[in-house]
Design a protein around this nucleic acid. Structure first.
Lengths: 134, 134
DNA sequence: TGTTCTGTAATAAAAATAATTACAGAATGA
DNA sequence: TCATTCTGTAATTATTTTTATTACAGAACA
């Protein structure tokens, strides 16, 4: 679902987009109302993607590394749902049944279609757009 | 995610679309490789929606109640994800923070946008279309 | 009237998410 | 220098969600 990590990432980035200096993970966690460790983990993903920069040590924290208008939600989606939002069931369908044999491929194609539709829409929305709504 | 119940429903309907008479839940469960009770539960939802008809008792089972071309995946999606695929986190964000105060509405809007994009695509695909691929 | 289906409730097991604890290392500055 | 306050990350626990199982009443049929 689009919540969970995706919502967390959006919240983090929108918050950072509004703040001047380095923002501590505990502060961000206080705004989202989740555990600071989860924030740090998500930030490490965002950092790997080049969206944020982090300063360790006292008075440290994170800040945006690019302009908010450069962060599209489609990028975020791809980073976070690397393995596809619409994942496989791990129960192997019955291969002796014609439908069971084909359903895997059918669902795969469907997932691709669905994700493409989603990404196309998310591509048009940036963190700046969300920021404008705050 | 699009799997789980959604994939189950699609599998059930595609199977029923290929079969002549009433199909038992245990047979369907054997094709999907899940528990028959889950199949019966999902069928009860599909029945409430008017897509399938069920015959109880010996030699009973389910069959399609409408033509496969009349069942669009967008309909299925709506039936199954009544409360929205992209649901809320139940942690209330910090209302003393400007971002925390607005993020709920922002995510709600985003979810609507995302679902609309998804539904638009799913609207163009029917069970008949999937059947043609089997 | 026994057999074989369904419907559904209740419970248990498994998987996915989120929270917490713990601690080493980095930067700061008194 | 060294106490303080940050981060990063591993390990564990707790919670929630999803799936599976068990159980049994009722329907239809031969």
């Amino acid at each position: 679902m689009i919540n969970g990590r995706f919502a967390t990432a959006i919240h983090i980035l929108t918050l950072l987009a509004r703040e001047e200096g380095d923002v501590a993970s505990s502060y961000i966690a206080g705004s989202i109302n989740i555990n600071p460790v989860l924030v740090r983990k998500e930030i490490s993903v965002l950092r790997d993607a080049g969206f944020v920069a982090t300063q360790e040590g006292k008075n440290g924290g994170s800040r945006l590394a690019v302009r908010p208008s450069k962060i599209r939600l489609s990028d975020l989606y791809k980073i976070i749902y690397r393995e596809g939002l619409f994942t496989h069931s791990k129960n192997m369908p019955n291969q002796h049944c014609a439908v069971g044999r084909r359903i895997g491929t059918i669902m795969d194609n469907l997932n691709v279609e669905a994700e493409q539709a989603l990404l196309k829409r998310l591509h048009a929305i940036s963190i700046q757009d969300l920021l404008d709504k705050v």
